[in-house]
Design a protein around this nucleic acid. Structure first.
Length: 318
DNA sequence: ATGGTTTTTACTGCGTC
DNA sequence: GACGCGGTAAAAACCAT
């Protein structure tokens, strides 16, 4: 609950772009665009004037209106969520034919076999359906986070394994698929922070964390603690810093690692601090506020970390 | 549950443009 | 005066026990 408001507040910091000329139909207040969510929102009364101008899901296109009508979405993920539509076969348990006469022994045996197989197919179907929905979610989140295809692959594989090992009961599809994305991103060396993940997921951060731990443990996934360096390129490019600064930031982190300055500190914070420090060292224009924005880390933390980083560096020179 | 550690929030003061 | 930066205290979140 408090988490939610906290996120809201943080997001509202981004709502700075005023749309010229537009006024709110409700209260005539300023209308403002929230880039992050593609929403156009009134700054006074909070009315969402235009929601989701950007579709973060996979991009399906309808090339003409007929096509739009019959399949506004195409391809495996969504079509298959409609897989069975409740039309699966049911076989009555009574050993009777349609007229209520009882069956011969031979017939009865046949019906037993049919029931068994029908049941098997049906449970398989429900797993399939589950899987399809999850894969759709994984895809959606992955594209919202700008994750490459191989990450989606890994996430799907992890999910499949989770499903096979019956890890799902008691957990939401959403939660587990989110965790898979989180894990996959980390394993692929392009980690996203829990905050970023939970921004695109319908699930609470705490639940994602819990489910993630569970999945990792049960599946014995090898996922090392996130390396701060892996965040650097993303932050650097978001801030439009030079390659030189990026290199510098990585160096900073390397020393820090050798000096063991960083144990117990959040990797994202370290990365953000390194990026900021590097920008300073290469005389490039950035502010702590900007870094804290892209990294989703408070300015205070950046300050603390980057002092430590610079100290470690001094020690190295001396 | 608890205690220790880290991060965040909120606020203040300082220098500069 | 707004902005960027630095520091601090207290609250909150996190983690291991």
């Amino acid at each position: 609950m408090s988490e939610r408001t906290h996120l809201r507040e943080r997001n509202s910091q981004r709502e700075t772009e005023t749309d010229e000329g537009l006024t709110c139909p409700e209260c005539d207040g300023h209308v403002v665009t929230d880039e992050e969510h593609g929403e156009t929102v009134c700054s006074d009364c909070g009315l969402v004037v235009e929601a989701d101008s950007v579709d973060r899901g996979p991009e399906w296109r309808a090339f003409d209106s007929r096509e739009k009508d019959e399949k506004s979405r195409v391809g495996a993920p969504t079509t298959n969520t409609m897989h069975d539509k409740g039309l699966s076969t049911n076989i009555d348990w009574r050993d009777q034919d349609a007229y209520g006469r009882s069956l011969s022994g031979r017939q009865r045996q046949k019906m037993q076999r049919l029931r068994k197989w029908n049941e098997r197919f049906r449970t398989r179907d429900s797993k399939e359906r589950n899987l399809k929905q999850a894969l759709g979610e994984i895809d959606r989140m992955a594209s919202a986070l700008g994750l490459p295809d191989n990450v989606r692959e890994t996430a799907s594989v992890i999910y499949r394994r989770a499903l096979d090992e019956d890890l799902l009961p008691g957990r939401s599809i959403e939660g587990v698929s989110t965790s898979c994305v989180y894990a996959a991103a980390r394993m692929a060396g392009v980690p996203r922070s829990l905050d970023e993940i939970s921004d695109v997921s319908r699930v609470e951060k705490s639940e994602i964390a819990r489910t993630y731990r569970y999945v990792v443990r049960e599946l014995k996934l090898e996922v090392k603690p996130a390396d701060p360096e892996q965040y650097v390129p993303r932050f650097a490019s978001a801030l439009e810093l030079s390659d030189e600064a990026e290199m510098r930031a990585k160096q900073l982190l390397k020393n820090a690692k050798e000096k063991g300055v960083h144990s117990g500190k959040s990797p994202v914070g370290l990365a953000a601090a390194a990026v900021y420090a590097a920008a300073l060292l290469t005389n490039e224009k950035t502010t702590q506020a900007a870094v804290s924005e892209v990294a989703d880390i408070s300015e205070v933390t950046i300050r603390n970390r980057y002092h430590e980083l610079l100290e470690a560096e001094e020690g190295l020179i001396a």
